Amino acid sequence: MQRLGELEAVVMERLWSLNRPVAVRDVLEELHGDRPLAYTTVMTVMDNLHRKGMLVREKDGRAYRYRAAQPRDEYTATIMGQALASSTNPSAALLHFLETIPSDNIALLREALGEHDPHDDERRS
């Protein structure tokens, strides 16, 4: 999964916050207050996101309605996993990451690890 460009990220943020299938025009109207964009620009960005697998689309008359292919938190987890997997020393990278995150996020991590061990599913098989 590729990282998102600036406008792609803005469009994805809007789609995640709307949390429903939307037309290009809906996104254009949502973005209009932030920056003037052409309809074709937003349409191209959304089509690119669809080709990248970030958006799912369904036909609605002559147009399409788009929705995020996965929730924001799953996308974030995928990006984090890819970054860790691309490291030549994942252990060191993870330790450096843990040194940089705020203590309240460390508490969330400890809580999540206590509640769910993803390897339990593998052990049961």
Results as ranks from 00 to 15, higher is better:
R51Y: 12
A63P: 00
S86H: 06
S86T: 05
A107E: 15
P71D: 03
L95C: 00
L15R: 04
D47W: 08
V42Y: 08
G53E: 11
L94R: 07
M43K: 12
L84T: 09
D121N: 00
L18F: 15
T78C: 07
I101L: 14
D117F: 07
Q70I: 12
G5P: 00
A107L: 11
H50Y: 15
Y39A: 01
F97A: 04
N105I: 12
L7T: 05
H50C: 10
E99T: 08
G81H: 02
R124M: 09
Q70M: 15
D73G: 01
M46I: 07
A83R: 14
E99P: 00
Q82E: 15
R110F: 14
S87G: 02
V24C: 10
L55R: 03
Y39D: 01
H32T: 09
S103C: 00
R123G: 00
V10C: 05
L7V: 02
D73W: 14
G53S: 10
R25G: 06
D34V: 08
N48D: 14
G5L: 00
I101C: 10
R124K: 12
R65I: 06
D26S: 04
F97Q: 00
A107Y: 11
T88C: 08
G53T: 12
V56C: 10
R62P: 01
V56L: 15
T100Q: 13
R62D: 10
H96Q: 11
N89W: 14
E99V: 02
H96G: 04
T88F: 13
V45T: 06
S125T: 08
R65A: 03
P21R: 01
D73F: 12
N19H: 13
D34F: 11
D104R: 12
M46C: 04
R51G: 10
S91R: 10
A93E: 10
H50S: 14
R65V: 12
L95S: 04
Y39S: 01
E6M: 08
I106T: 08
H32V: 06
E58N: 02
R67M: 13
A85C: 09
T88D: 14
L109I: 15
V45F: 02
